[in-house]
Design a protein around this nucleic acid. Structure first.
Lengths: 241, 241
DNA sequence: ACAAAAGTGTTACGATTACACCCATGT
DNA sequence: ACATGGGTGTAATCGTAACACTTTTGT
């Protein structure tokens, strides 16, 4: 897990993951912050071992960040422009951290390996945010959930990667019935609606929304949920199939 | 253009292109056949130079096969299973061609380079089949258009790649208004309809189809086309925008 | 009784599908 | 005149959006 240049990775190919969660009526993305001076945020990512498929690599990266094995996950786009490299970012990082880095946190070989041009396969994942215990890596200062509306400025093209992931999520949501991956095991119809509103950034009519979701025939209605609020208790639902 | 192992390519990463054309009421794919004993077909593909983006690489590959520069082209999926390698195919090819190959058509270095595990980015392209003069490469015996319903058995996972490309084409066709890339500059409404019927493998109602296409507001109606047939002359249309 | 939010029904609208008719063209 | 295929109009149907009403719960 240490020097990528010494691992048996495929060269110049990486995976970047956009991990979506949902909390407080907001769509969120899990983003680590690097443990260096200069406020560097970078999407969870990694490389592909010679002995694993790209999907397996993505799963491994996700598990190391969320602790969850069973994650909904899909590739959505390859980012492969000519000048796509870490170099400007790393040079600035080194510039801002000369004293703490010392002479050789990066040796020459290592530096050249990670600053080459990289082509990256974008994956997006949908998780139940309550089941995730975000794992920061050695290199991270912190890791946290950021609202899609208030993402920090990330390195390279990572902000664009998130934007593309959101586009894909929106266009796949209904057809692939994947929204429920973002919710707990049981949930109310209002919660589904608020999730949709967070994803599409627009309101939905309550009655029509309920009809649409129930017509998907993928929800099982459970007992009512007594919240203590001064109103009718909503039903709980569970996703089946 | 000779030994890939001596070129400045990104390692273990390739591009495979599904080039769609349309002729004789059939959706077709451009597939070269290798100039060896054993009937090997393989999708047009290639590698990515260090100094070109993946889109540029795909364009280069397409131009070398079609002679056309301005091609509609889109990536649609990455194929990255663990065992994804040319090796079984090449070993069989060598086995069947020992006498003609002689001792060293492939040297050891070359053989190892091309038989490593490869991750491939799938692109699909839409071309006006009449503008294409299929170019076979040195290594090819022939290159030709094969109906999507009667594709030859291709090496590796190339048949699956075509199937995935067709799925993507179908789901993008209306939204991205790309069908017209498969037609000549001017065409009749019947031709558009037959194209759709070839792509979706199902019939469309003539009047409703016409309404739907015209409601896209991307066609300009030109003069009538007198065919000499014993019926009303159809209008010609041109794609605009 | 009332406010708040949930559940459901009913109508209106728009887009798609189905049906029908008329027109141009060559034999 | 007729067969053939092209263009277009209208009605029926379906799914979605808009509107309305009733029910449940705690104060």
């Amino acid at each position: 897990m240490h020097s990528p240049s010494e691992q048996n990775y495929i060269q110049q190919l990486s995976i970047d993951c956009v991990i979506f969660g949902y909390q407080d009526k907001q769509l969120k993305v899990l983003v680590p912050k690097l443990n260096f001076r200069g406020d560097f945020w970078a999407l969870p990512g990694g490389f592909i071992d010679q002995n694993e498929s790209i999907d397996e690599a993505a799963h491994r990266i996700l598990e190391s960040r969320t602790g969850i094995i069973d994650i909904y996950l899909e590739q959505f786009r390859v980012f492969g422009d000519t000048g796509r490299t870490n170099k400007p970012f790393l040079e600035r990082l080194i510039e801002l951290n000369e004293e703490t880095l010392g002479a050789n946190r990066f040796n020459q070989k290592e530096f050249e390996w990670v600053t080459r041009r990289f082509i990256s396969i974008g994956y997006y994942a949908l998780v139940d945010i309550n089941k995730v215990i975000p794992q920061k890596h050695e290199i991270d200062e912190s890791i946290g959930w950021y609202s899609i509306r208030q993402l920090p400025p990330m390195i390279m093209d990572h902000n664009e990667i998130v934007a593309r992931a959101l586009d894909t999520l929106r266009s796949n949501l209904d057809e692939k019935l994947i929204a429920f991956n973002l919710l707990p095991d049981t949930f109310t119809m209002r919660e589904v609606q608020e999730l949709y509103e967070a994803i599409f950034d627009k309101p939905f009519a309550r009655n029509n929304f309920q009809k649409k979701i129930l017509d998907m025939n993928v929800l099982e209605r459970l007992e009512k949920k007594y919240t203590g609020a001064a109103n009718k208790a909503p039903y709980l639902y569970r996703f089946v199939r």
